[in-house]
Simulated assay, not measured.
Amino acid sequence: MSTISLRVPDNELAIFKAYAKHNNSSLSEIIRTTMLAHIENEYDLKVFEDYEAQKASGTLKTRPVSALWDELKL
């Protein structure tokens, strides 16, 4: 496992520590999960924006859900 160093103002560190304590978690775990959630949210937004752009341009390809069930053999 790797270690990173992060410089933050003392007042922000106090906020981070209080949040971690409130959530019964370590500061490292809070920073890690928050960062991963932020990345996931940005990815989800990009996927949604691409979907909307394809829909608006008329290039969106769809298929019936029954085709998915057949493909998955469900």
Rank of each mutant, 00 (worst) to 15 (best):
M1T: 10
M1Q: 10
M1V: 04
S2R: 09
S2T: 14
T3P: 06
T3K: 07
I4S: 08
S5F: 08
S5E: 10
S5L: 05
L6F: 04
L6P: 01
L6T: 08
R7K: 14
V8F: 03
V8D: 05
V8Q: 06
V8C: 04
D10R: 08
D10M: 05
N11D: 09
N11I: 14
N11E: 15
E12G: 12
L13K: 12
L13D: 13
L13N: 15
L13F: 14
L13C: 13
A14L: 10
A14F: 04
A14K: 14
I15H: 07
I15P: 05
I15L: 07
I15G: 07
I15V: 13
F16N: 03
F16M: 12
F16P: 11
F16I: 15
F16G: 09
K17H: 11
K17C: 12
K17S: 11
A18N: 09
Y19K: 11
A20C: 03
A20E: 01
A20P: 07
K21G: 10
K21T: 14
K21R: 10
N24G: 12
N24D: 15
S26K: 12
S26T: 15
S26V: 11
S26R: 06
L27T: 10
I30E: 03
I30A: 09
I31K: 01
R32V: 01
R32P: 02
R32Y: 00
T33W: 01
T33E: 09
T33F: 04
T34M: 06
M35I: 12
M35N: 07
L36D: 04
A37K: 10
H38G: 09
I39T: 10
I39H: 03
E40H: 00
N41S: 07
E42L: 04
E42D: 13
Y43H: 05
Y43A: 04
Y43V: 05
Y43L: 08
D44K: 06
L45M: 07
K46N: 05
V47H: 00
V47M: 02
V47G: 00
E49G: 03
E49L: 00
E49P: 02
D50A: 05
D50Y: 02
D50F: 01
Y51H: 03
Y51E: 02
Y51I: 03
Q54A: 11
Q54F: 03
Q54I: 01
Q54L: 07
K55S: 05
A56K: 06
A56W: 00
S57T: 06
S57F: 00
S57M: 01
G58K: 00
L60H: 00
L60P: 00
L60I: 00
L60D: 00
L60T: 02
K61Y: 04
T62L: 00
R63I: 15
P64W: 02
P64M: 03
P64L: 03
V65W: 05
S66E: 14
A67Y: 09
A67C: 13
L68W: 04
W69D: 13
W69V: 15
D70E: 13
E71A: 14
E71M: 06
E71Y: 13
L72C: 13
L72P: 09
K73D: 10
L74E: 06
L74I: 15
L74M: 06
